[in-house]
């Protein structure tokens, strides 16, 4: 019974996430920010489209197909994406993206078999790892990014109450899509800064 409920919740999460990604894509195409009401209506319509079985030749709801490929996204990814719908949302600071990118680049090679050290195993209950996560969240707070503190807090609580199928804290904090987003964001920021620097150099170059 509980399993059935959690599976439904997971599908609902995926349906909302899929809808959010489509809205984000539509905004990028139209190159202008939609009003909140438009986003809310779109979210409602698309999330329902993904959540309910459509019949025809499809055996499952659309969200289940997406979930089959991506698995459950981390709570951090999910909340970052969902919060982008809120009015007055500010993008994550570059230092957060840098931190995530650095962690991901160190984490995935070892977690995928490079050597006998498996950092993924720390996520099952290592006190040291858990304290490191808390310190990361406190740094977000000190850096005046309260949203980061809330998101990490929710991820820890979701892990503690066993919200998803995983018992591993890593799965609530990080996923490959978050890592790609962070690395892409970091690279874009660096390129942008370089361009700005080059432009400034051109403007103020002695004649």
């Amino acid at each position: 019974m509980m399993n059935s409920f959690l599976q439904t919740i997971a599908l609902l999460e995926m349906a909302i996430t899929s809808a959010m990604i489509i809205i984000w894509g539509l905004q990028k195409i139209s190159q202008k920010e939609f009003p909140f009401a438009v986003k809310a209506v779109l979210l409602l319509a698309l999330a329902n489209l993904f959540f309910w079985p459509l019949g025809m030749s499809l055996e499952l709801p659309l969200a289940a197909y997406v979930r089959g490929v991506t698995g459950d996204l981390s709570i951090v990814s999910t909340l970052l994406l969902w919060s982008s719908l809120l009015p007055g949302n500010k993008s994550a600071p570059i230092s957060f993206k840098f931190g995530i990118a650095l962690i991901a680049l160190g984490f995935y090679p070892f977690a995928l078999g490079f050597g006998m050290i498996d950092p993924y195993a720390w996520g099952y209950g290592s006190i040291a790892f858990f304290i490191a996560v808390l310190i990361f969240a406190v740094i977000c707070g000190v850096a005046n990014w309260s949203k980061g503190v809330w998101i990490v807090g929710f991820a820890i609580i979701a892990w503690g109450v066993h919200w998803h199928e995983s018992m591993n804290l890593w799965d609530y904090l990080l996923d490959p899509f978050l890592a790609i987003w962070a690395i892409y964001g970091l690279c874009s920021a660096i390129l942008h800064k370089r361009k700005e620097k080059a432009r400034a150099g051109y403007l103020f170059r002695p004649g």
Binding site: L134, V138, S146, V149, V152, G153, F154, I156, I157, V161
Partner: peptide, 14 residues
């Protein structure tokens, strides 16, 4: 408030 929430999360985690 955010740090208080993190404290609550820390308790749940521990």
């Amino acid at each position: 408030i955010a740090l208080c929430f993190l404290l609550l999360a820390a308790v749940v985690g521990f």
